[in-house]
């Protein structure tokens, strides 16, 4: 089992802080009824995940993974791991693509429903569904 020594706690504090941030974002997505806020929460959730990735690439004493321009590479130099950076670059782009699509959908929803509050939208949809059931329901025993 893990021993909770000081170095373990200090060495893992970053992960735990990012977890806290992630969960804050996730909470906003799940709990908030405002659609724009949901998107903001989603962004926050994703950014915290990116932090987790980037922090695992860090090497103590390392620098950014860019060689000198003349390509005279100092064999002693320590570089941080570039692979998480590459993955997160891709993920950030995917994130902004999702955000812009989500916002475009919000604009359309607002035009059709005149609100961007989940509770009100659900109310409108419930009313619509009730109306439909009154109009289209009871096929089984309905008059021929």
């Amino acid at each position: 089992m893990t021993e909770f020594t000081l170095s373990f706690i200090v060495g893992h504090m970053n992960y735990w802080l990012f977890t806290l941030l992630m969960m804050t974002g996730l909470y906003i997505v799940v709990d908030k009824g405002n659609l724009v806020k949901k998107i903001v929460g989603l962004n926050m959730f994703q950014t915290a995940v990116f932090m987790l990735y980037i922090s695992m690439g860090k090497v103590t004493g390392g620098t950014a993974p860019i060689f000198p321009t003349d390509m005279n590479i100092d064999p002693e130099a320590v570089y941080s791991n570039p692979l998480p950076h590459v993955l997160i670059l891709t993920a950030i782009v995917v994130g902004i693509a999702t955000t812009s699509l989500g916002l475009a959908l919000i604009v359309r929803i607002r035009e059709e429903y005149h609100t961007i509050e989940e509770a009100l939208i659900q109310k409108i949809e419930l009313e619509k569904a009730t109306r439909e059931i009154r109009e289209f329901g009871e096929t089984m025993g309905g008059p021929e």
Binding site: G11, T19, V59, L83
Partner: peptide
């Protein structure tokens, strides 16, 4: 996270 290497540890599998 419990089995993760310490932050900045050069011996971590990713490195």
């Amino acid at each position: 996270t419990l089995d993760m290497p310490n932050f900045g540890d050069p011996a971590a599998p990713v490195h």
